[in-house]
């Protein structure tokens, strides 16, 4: 079954499945141990290396399982982990599983433009005002009308000393917002890159670890970015394109990495994101098979009651009109052929002497005849008339 069309072939909204968008993606860590090599970590020795690739690999290797930062002895204690998702995803959650004590504060950021600019998704700290200048999130949840980056409690250390930083996009958005109908929420969850900034390590008995002199390193095993490949409801899967870049397998007459625009000939109405109720498929222009290109005209679209705004370009086969639905001057409709037939329009073929012009009636094909001349192409004298020698009055009354 085609997820993007129903049993009758009608388009319906479809979305790719929920995946770990970070799986197999490269992670850039601002600090990784092993250069220079120490007793515990050697980047050049696979058995003792702790590369950032371990955060997003499926595991199963023989070496260590955790990425580890350099030892951080004094401020700044920031370590940044950045993962490029390859294209836009609609993020549902982000999690980072630590191998050692989780940080006392961390920030989660997203980029929507492949790393050129960043915006916060959330903060995690036991001292929100001190670390990020923000109030802790109220127990009642988000209070604003739209989603916002809030400051949540820092992840708790588990009995084994590890911890989990977990963030759900719902944590930052007020209840009642629906992804399908809220452009603000759609924007909030959209990300091409995810960045975790580990701001401050946990220091026993000291809230301000930046003042601690004890060397510390962050260590984490798995970074997950749960989300759906962003296809705006017009694709059920994402595939690598010819250049190896991930792109939606677009349906509904759409194209682009996120199915974010209509295909060139599918511009009879403006592009729209699909909703649960309406697929908003891009519609092909109606050109009766006589044009390969068309353009969208908003004024015509409004005048049509928001039904059709496509205007066919370069009508072929001697057709003309917005939909290539009538014959161009000098041609007439052959009633015996379908409008879509390549030979639907026949040349008028008006007689060069008997006709008063070259343009015939577009429906009947009747040429304008001079006095005393008859026939569809004006090529015969009418009854009671005979041919003269004058090309100006080719038929004269028989005396």
């Amino acid at each position: 079954p085609d997820p993007c069309h129903d049993e009758g072939g009608a388009p319906r909204a479809c979305v790719p499945g929920l995946v770990n968008a970070a799986l197999g993606r490269e992670v850039l860590a601002s600090s990784t141990c092993g250069r220079p090599a120490t007793r515990a970590c050697d980047a050049s020795d696979p058995r003792r290396a702790h590369p950032a690739a371990l955060l997003t690999s499926a595991g199963g290797g023989a070496g260590p399982l955790c990425w580890r930062s350099d030892s951080l002895a004094r401020a700044p204690l920031n370590v940044t982990l950045t993962v490029a998702l390859g294209k836009a995803f609609e993020v549902v959650f982000v999690s980072l599983r630590f191998c050692s004590a989780p940080p006392a504060s961390a920030a989660l950021l997203k980029s929507q433009d492949h790393g050129r600019s960043w915006a916060p998704l959330g903060f995690f700290s036991s001292h929100c005002r001190l670390d990020y200048g923000r109030p802790p999130v109220p127990a009642t949840g988000p209070a604003g009308p739209g989603p916002e980056a809030l400051c949540f409690p820092a992840p708790q250390a588990q009995p084994d000393g590890s911890g989990l930083l977990a963030f759900s996009v719902q944590d930052g958005s007020p209840p009642g917002l629906d992804l399908a109908s809220s452009p603000v929420l759609q924007d909030w969850v959209t990300a091409t890159d995810i960045r975790v900034v580990l701001t401050r390590p946990t220091a026993p008995g000291d809230a301000r670890a930046s003042e601690a002199a004890v060397p510390y390193s962050y260590s984490a095993a798995e970074l997950q970015v749960g989300g759906r490949c962003k296809c705006n409801g017009h694709a059920s899967r994402c595939l690598p394109d010819t250049q190896g870049r991930l792109a939606c397998d677009c349906r509904h007459g759409t194209e682009g990495p996120d199915c974010g625009r209509c295909k060139p000939f599918y511009c009879d109405r403006p592009w729209q994101r699909a909703t649960a109720r309406e697929a908003h498929a891009c519609l092909a222009c109606s050109c009766n098979g006589h044009a390969r290109r068309c353009r969208f005209n908003m004024e015509l679209y409004r005048l049509s009651g928001r039904r059709s705004g496509g205007v066919c370009l370069n009508c072929r086969h001697n057709t003309a009109g917005r939909h290539c639905h009538y014959c161009r001057e000098g041609f007439y409709r052959d009633a015996g052929r379908a409008l879509s037939d390549r030979r639907a329009c026949r040349a008028c073929d008006c007689h060069p002497v008997g006709a008063a012009g070259k343009t015939c009636n577009q429906t009947t094909g009747q040429c304008p005849c001079k006095d005393g001349v008859t026939g569809l192409t004006c090529n015969r004298c009418a009854p009671g008339f005979q041919q003269s020698r004058s090309p100006v009055a080719p038929c004269v009354k028989i005396p």
């Binding site: 008859t374 026939g375 015969r380 004298c381």
Partner: peptide, 23 residues
């Protein structure tokens, strides 16, 4: 009655040379 088609050879183009169609 079906009349014969116009015979182009019968026309005298002497005074209408500029109207004469190219054949």
């Amino acid at each position: 009655e079906v009349m014969p088609t116009l015979d182009m050879a019968l026309f005298d183009w002497t005074d209408y040379e500029d109207l004469k169609p190219e054949v």
